[in-house]
Write a protein that binds this DNA or RNA. Structure first.
Lengths: 250, 250
DNA sequence: GTCTAGACTTCCGTCCGGCGGAAGGCGGAG
DNA sequence: CTCCGCCTTCCGCCGGACGGAAGTCTAGAC
């Protein structure tokens, strides 16, 4: 009997949703389980997606995201245009600090990392382009949330806030104070809130109209003065803002 | 009356296919026309895709590719893993030549550009990450086609070959000779075959198993000796190959 | 102000394509 | 050999996708 709970489109998207940074390659049966589709339906959808190029089947029989989807993703203005404007500036900031440098945007209550430059010498860092972290625990997240609307801040702070380390701030009232500080100072610091060994310093990137559309940060080992990175981060963020303003309209 | 020619999945994919580098932002009516869907159906599909995050609606009412699709695309091994391995090497090659540097993979009878580094001083170039060009007219395409199977070569040379300039080689027999040269020499040169003012020099990138999975090239203005770039390109291509071999298995 | 055009959104009855059970093929483990 | 898991193909039933029609909204002409 047919299970009546989702539209066909939703089922197709469920197939795609089965893929994640943790699971970039899946067998048909895994897709079927993860997307909660019968094997038959999963088979049919996967075959159609593969024919189109959204998925590719490897020599091992497992499916991966195909080039066609990557091409489509390359049209997303929030990542690609930003990345274009930011890369040279990120490289300068990397040269100046020799620490991990990254830029991210907000999507709902999460940060999505768009680009990162990582050196061999710098502390290792968990993020990759395309990976997500919650807003409240990262410096970029605090910057992005600080410039969101009041409704969005309420919603973000109303949900349960995950604790990563003993230093992760999960108290909404303390977070509101931190957001106010962030707005006033123009930068945010997340000190050991994700990992015990590292801290990050972030500043906002604005579009032509002055709206905060992204945030940029350095991730540094937790020793010495964190504030000494602030001027470089602010300068870099303004640099990206300038690049965005001079670029052609999307 | 319902038009019976495509499955629902194909219609969803047709909506996504409406977006291209030339048309990154579309109104609902445009999507309806391009995907050949009734306005009602286009509206329903677009709404579902937007809810999921595949599309985003801008302040101007137009739809663009959403972050979610970009994240999925970031899981495509053929682009992302390659890009990770190649970027540092491409940067070295850029520093050595100060010309446009790019890396591409093959998809069917086309080249798909995965990454490029462009300088202000270098000749302007038409390609962007995610854009496509035919195999026969570009140096990277010749390298990729030279290492394809005989069947794929037959198919690629059997189709009508587009001429871009007076120098574009469109004769299958001449192309076969060029492919043989490419295999023997280990590099290919496309001289003014895309634009009258530029030429490109490409070399193959191999995976752990020795199969050619990508090609890398420099695009240079059409004057002086093209061959002087060959050693640098070969070295860079081998560098990417080495990076791919040392990276963890996908 | 009114009128018109175009783009978008919502509603709803019809009908056909998506669904999943069943059966068959294939390969590896015991 | 059998059993088990994974994949693939087939087919009849029924509920969801389709698109015409009507309604809403905005911008621009006059």
């Amino acid at each position: 009997m047919r299970t009546v709970d989702r539209t066909v489109t939703q089922r197709v998207l469920a197939v795609l949703d089965a893929f994640s940074p943790q699971r970039p390659a899946l067998r048909l049966a895994e897709i079927s389980r993860l997307a909660e589709l019968s094997l038959t339906t999963a088979h049919r959808q996967v075959a159609e997606l593969t024919r189109w190029g959204a998925l590719e089947r490897g020599a091992d029989g497992r499916y991966r995201i195909g080039l066609k989807l990557w091409e489509l993703g390359a049209l997303a203005p929030r990542s690609v245009d930003l990345r274009e404007a930011a890369l040279p500036v990120l490289e300068d900031l990397y040269e100046a600090t020799h620490q991990n440098v990254q830029i991210a945007v907000r999507d709902g209550h999460e940060v999505v990392y768009v680009e990162r430059i990582t050196g061999r010498a710098a502390v290792s860092v968990v993020t990759r382009p395309g990976s997500r972290l919650p807003l409240h625990a990262t410096a970029v997240g605090l910057v992005l949330l600080a410039h969101a609307t009041a409704d969005e801040i309420d919603a973000a702070l109303g949900a349960p806030l995950k604790r990563y380390t003993a230093h992760t701030v999960v108290d909404p009232r303390r977070l509101r104070r931190i957001l106010a500080d962030t707005r006033r100072q123009g930068y945010a610091i997340s000190d050991r809130q994700i990992e015990e060994v590292s801290a990050s310093i972030a500043a906002p990137v604005r579009d032509r109209g002055g709206a905060v559309v992204a945030a940029l940060s350095v991730v540094v080992p937790r020793r010495g003065q964190l504030h000494r990175y602030v001027p470089a981060v602010l300068t870099a963020a303004r640099g990206v803002t300038r690049q965005l303003s001079s670029a052609p309209e999307g």
